[in-house]
């Protein structure tokens, strides 16, 4: 590249502004090369700004595009409003299903506990039905407030011992 005013010239986007620059106007008076560069540079920019290489949009095409933009924006807006609602409903359903599942699972756990209890009793007693009745009786007796004296308790124990 040369040592003329290229750097200074390329700072301008309009010819008039460049010519108002004292340094440029003084320089091109004596420098044919920079005078030509100035003309070429602004012609090139002008040609590029109005280049027929770039197709033009017709008014009808612009209107069609605008309608398309508005309808697409409306579709996206609807999606944007509907989506959070769908997510909220889905989340509620998941929470309810989870709660139901946990509740059922909890009952199953309780039932399993009872089954284990019965199984342990079964190990010690061949007749499970009788054992279970005795256990029930014991529970009942232990909860009775009428057991107030030791004699009654001992009698009860004897009955139990006999039965066992």
């Amino acid at each position: 590249m040369n040592n003329h005013i290229d750097n200074l010239l390329f700072d301008y986007n309009k010819k008039e502004s460049a010519l108002n620059d004292k340094e440029i106007s003084l320089h091109i008076q004596d420098c044919g090369r920079c005078r030509k560069l100035l003309e070429d540079y602004f012609n090139t920019i002008d040609v590029m700004r109005n280049s027929p290489e770039i197709p033009q949009l017709s008014d009808s095409e612009c209107s069609r595009m605008f309608e398309n933009i508005i309808s697409r924006a409306e579709v996206r807006r609807r999606k944007a409003t509907i989506l959070p609602r769908v997510i909220a409903v889905a989340a509620s359903v998941i929470i309810i299903l989870t709660a139901v599942f946990l509740y059922k699972n909890h009952n199953n756990t309780l039932n399993t506990g009872r089954e284990i209890e019965s199984h342990i009793i079964g190990i010690f007693s061949p007749d499970k039905t009788d054992d279970l009745e005795i256990i029930s009786d014991l529970e009942l007796f232990s909860n009775l407030d009428i057991i107030e004296n030791l004699e009654t308790l001992e009698e009860l124990n004897e009955v139990i011992d006999d039965e066992i």
Binding site: I54, P55, Q56, L57, E61, C62, M65, F66, N68, I69, R72, A73, R76
Partner: peptide, 28 residues
């Protein structure tokens, strides 16, 4: 701005349909 956006998009894509699509996306 529509024509300016279109011409800028065209300079990058060199295709009418593509430039039109980009222009619509910009305004959207």
């Amino acid at each position: 701005f529509v024509r300016r956006v279109f011409s800028m998009a065209y300079r990058f894509s060199r295709n009418y349909e593509t430039a039109r699509d980009i222009t619509q996306e910009v305004f959207l």
